[in-house]
């Protein structure tokens, strides 16, 4: 056994070294001694990856930034390659507080009801809203969800104050988990936080341990 040379930075490393002391390169992938060493390559040319200009405030952020250093806007580069990026485009449901929301077309309103499976209590979905927050009312922290599960044992069942939301996009109702502690499931399949899932009449929802059936009428 003899000394090996880090292919990444050419620093010699003792035999048996796992990582290069100088640059951190994983030396387990390096053939010891005499083996042909292909220097690793860069792929992304600096021209296209240099700075990320914030579309909101034009601040130049360093490469790899996910939120703008100046204004906090999420930078597009961070979007996961998914069906529609990282965040669902909630149809202008939460405009900055000042702007009065324009009346939305009826087809973008969430309608229907939820029925609690244990008690068979029906909870009508309040009409005329594009987004329905389901959770537990907590006046202390100023949380007033559209559908309050607190009187129905929501706390014991692990329902969060802002647990999940219903919304409509292009005529389809979606359920989105709002990063709840105890999670949301549709037909016993846990859904990922912040990723809206389509919902159809008769589907079973679980918020924490609480089971509800969604009916569109």
């Amino acid at each position: 056994m003899s000394v090996i040379t880090c292919p990444s930075c050419n620093t010699p490393a003792p035999p048996g070294a796992v990582f290069c002391d100088h640059c951190g390169y994983d030396l387990r992938t390096v053939a010891p001694m005499g083996g042909q060493q292909v220097p690793p390559t860069y792929m992304i040319p600096s021209a296209e990856a240099n700075e990320i200009i914030c579309p909101n405030c034009q601040h130049a952020n360093i490469a790899g930034s996910v939120f703008c250093e100046n204004c906090g806007s999420q930078l597009a580069q961070a979007a996961a390659p998914g069906p529609s990026g990282l965040k669902p485009a909630v149809p202008a449901a939460q405009p900055p507080a000042a702007a009065a929301p324009a009346p939305a077309p009826a087809e973008s309103m969430v309608v229907g009801r939820l029925v609690i499976q244990d008690s068979q209590v029906t909870l009508p979905i309040p009409p005329g809203k594009q987004v329905i927050i389901i959770g537990r009312e907590d006046p202390v922290s100023g949380v007033f969800p559209d559908i309050d599960l607190d009187p129905h044992g929501g706390h014991e069942a692990g329902v969060g104050r802002r647990h999940a939301q219903l919304m409509v996009k292009e005529g389809q109702v979606y359920i989105e988990d709002l990063d709840s502690v105890n999670g949301t499931a549709v037909n016993r399949q846990r859904i990922a936080a912040r990723q809206p899932q389509p919902l159809k009449s008769g589907d079973e929802l679980r918020l924490g341990k609480m089971a509800l059936i969604y009916y569109s009428k």
């Binding site: 490469a63 790899g64 996910v66």
Partner: peptide, 16 residues
């Protein structure tokens, strides 16, 4: 890490 993999680049980049 905040990404499963990072792009190999010849400039510095941010990571969490």
């Amino acid at each position: 890490p905040h990404r499963r993999v990072y792009p190999a680049m010849d400039i510095a980049q941010q990571a969490y």
